[in-house]
Design a protein around this nucleic acid. Structure first.
Length: 275
DNA sequence: ATTCGGACCTGAAAGC
DNA sequence: TGCTTTCAGGTCCGAA
């Protein structure tokens, strides 16, 4: 469910609330959540303090003061929720981290169970992450270099986390609309001006999404259980057959690499060869 | 080298 | 009403 803006919203709140807290106990309700038997490290978290919580792409990293890190990926329906320990635990809650300050605990909830947590040495972190640059930090010139010599469809490249980290299906669609580029366009056909538009669109769309607290289509909730509002501002995602908000043409839907792709055939003209 | 489909899961919504 | 099909903010793997 969550892409860069949603994950960032969660991380900001967790960082504010949990930094400095000391772990008092933990509960694993669904052991499959921990891959590579990394759950064996969990015992070492008890008595340790959280020193930093950060995001890299769509990944959430909780750093503890003994060189251990929890790496969380929410995949489609994962949630990290701050909750009162008194609140009943529902059947989709798979992991709970409790703190000495007993006012709030952290619960990992995930209906579809695609999400995962790894626990390992902080210094090993880089070995687990082969992610491309951050979309809000990359310079225009480096952004241009990303697409050099790439023949794949632009839409698929935007979703490639090794190329650029954090963009998912909603924002890839919205970014291409903002940049007025057809989703089937091969990256090698991108012109200089289009790349610049794309770079600007990436920044604009992600920043706007952040300002509106992310997109809640069905599952996304922030760390305090609140929904985002950016879904109310989507231009194309989920709007098949509805009029384009810019020109009135009907929004179309295609399948590209197995993912729904929404675009305006008028605003995002297909030019030349693309597939 | 790419691209595609399927797998991993559950549940909501749409279709009949 | 109820049964069936389709679809979903992600990624990984193996087969064409």
């Amino acid at each position: 469910m969550p892409e860069l803006p949603e994950v960032e919203i969660i991380v900001r709140k967790l960082s504010l609330k949990l930094t400095g807290y000391e772990v008092s106990s933990y509960r694993v309700l669904f052991p499959g959540l921990f891959r590579n038997r990394s759950g064996e490290f969990l015992e070492q978290l008890v008595g340790r303090k959280i020193v930093k919580i950060r995001r890299r792409g769509k990944v959430i990293l909780l750093n503890f003061d003994n060189d251990l890190t929890l790496l969380c990926h929410l995949k489609m329906t994962g949630q990290l929720l701050l909750s009162s320990p008194q609140k009943p635990v529902d059947k989709h809650t798979h992991f709970i981290l409790s703190f000495n300050n007993q006012i709030e605990e952290l619960r990992f909830r995930d209906v579809r169970k695609f999400g995962s947590i790894l626990c390992f040495q902080t210094s090993e972190t880089l070995k687990f992450l082969s992610l491309g640059p951050e979309p809000l930090e990359i310079s225009l010139s480096r952004f241009q270099r990303l697409f050099r010599g790439r023949k794949a469809r632009l839409k698929s490249l935007l979703l490639d986390q090794n190329l650029i980290a954090g963009i998912g299906n909603i924002y890839a669609n919205e970014i291409l609309f903002e940049a007025k580029i057809h989703p089937l366009l091969s990256a090698s056909f991108l012109e200089e001006g289009e790349i610049k538009r794309l770079w600007k669109a990436v920044r604009l769309v992600l920043k706007r999404a952040l300002e509106h607290g992310g997109s809640s289509i069905r599952d996304f909730k922030d760390a305090e259980g609140r929904e985002g509002k950016f879904q109310n501002y989507h231009q194309v995602y989920g709007r098949k057959d509805l009029p384009c908000l810019r020109c009135g043409e009907e929004i179309e839907r295609l399948r590209i690499g197995g993912r729904s792709s929404f675009f305006c055939p008028q605003c995002q003209k297909e030019k030349g060869e693309s597939s």
